[in-house]
């Protein structure tokens, strides 16, 4: 028996994953798995009861995260992870609800739900893996594709203006907003930890390489090249004005924690308001 066998060591991530579903479906060089590891690490460090953590995903590459994490997890429909999460949170306010999905899912088809959940300050954490395109369907142009980048439905390059996710989140009312690249491993973990602890609506945007589609169509090399490229182009500016966070093709990426503020959550505001108006007639909810 070798020493290695005696250790019976297991990958610490296995505790957080449905190992009967690994290997996952993501391409070689895709960064989503790395973001999942950062998330697992955040769960570990947060020391929260994993029974209380729920992951909801929509559809797409990142939408598959719900199927791999060993938590109560829901793989919902395209764009609807946030309202699904809203229902879960309101039905059982003890839950720590995490929406883990992609840019196309949350900001394309599901953009309306995002802004409204942020406006209400619904107490959920949104982890958005931004790979600048619709990857699962073959690399189509997205609401996040920078101008000039090529996509399968923008074969001559994208000319539409794109969303700046932190700017949108702040304008809509989010109480925690951060952006990192997938290579900012420990900073992603820290932001997820902070967001999980935050009562209110949080967004963590993680810029992640899509090697098979976005990188290939734009001749940006392999996953490693892209991971490195995003990291090298990033400049950490905590508290940066979210109006300055637009992402241009091949331009610099401002990352950091931009917003971290206090505001009553939906349920807190509801309980407070109703108690004030209805007094004893009101049955306090979830407290």
């Amino acid at each position: 028996m070798t020493k290695e066998d005696r250790l019976e060591a297991k990958n610490p991530s296995e505790k957080f994953l449905r190992m009967d579903r690994i290997p996952h479906i993501w391409c070689p060089g895709c960064g989503i798995g790395t973001v999942v590891t950062s998330f697992n690490e955040a769960l570990k460090k947060s020391k929260i009861d994993l029974d209380d953590v729920v992951v909801v995903s929509g559809i797409g590459c990142t939408g598959r995260v719900a199927g791999y994490v060993k938590l109560d997890s829901f793989h919902s429909t395209h764009g609807r992870a946030i309202p699904f999460a809203t229902g879960l949170k309101l039905a059982n306010p003890n839950l720590n609800v995490v929406v883990f999905s992609g840019d196309g899912d949350i900001f394309g088809i599901g953009g309306n739900h995002f802004i409204h959940a942020a406006r209400r300050n619904m107490d959920i954490t949104v982890i958005c893996v931004n790979n600048f395109n619709y990857a699962m369907t073959g690399g189509q142009v997205a609401a996040t594709t920078p101008i000039g980048a090529n996509a399968s439905t923008a074969p001559y390059g994208n000319f539409e203006f794109s969303f700046s996710l932190p700017y949108l989140a702040e304008a809509a009312g989010a109480t925690y907003v951060a952006r990192w690249t997938a290579l900012h491993l420990r900073r992603v973990t820290k932001s997820i930890q902070e967001a999980l602890a935050k009562p209110g609506f949080s967004l963590i945007e993680v810029i992640t390489p899509c090697v098979t589609l976005y990188a290939r169509r734009n001749r940006l090399g392999d996953g490693l090249n892209l991971l490195k490229y995003y990291y090298d182009k990033s400049v950490i500016e905590h508290g940066a004005d979210t109006r300055t966070l637009d992402i241009s093709y091949q331009g610099k990426l401002v990352v950091g924690k931009f917003i971290d503020k206090e505001k009553p959550t939906f349920l807190h505001a509801m309980n407070e308001h109703m108690t004030k108006i209805l007094g004893d007639k009101f049955v306090k909810y979830g407290e």
Partner: peptide, 26 residues
């Protein structure tokens, strides 16, 4: 770092036990 960066959950690190010290644990 390899453990954190691996997108496949395929690599991890443990503390190497020194025989003489019997050091253990994570």
């Amino acid at each position: 770092l390899c453990e954190s960066i691996c997108p496949e959950f395929a690599i991890f690190v443990t503390i190497k036990e020194e025989e003489e010290e019997g050091e253990k644990g994570e």
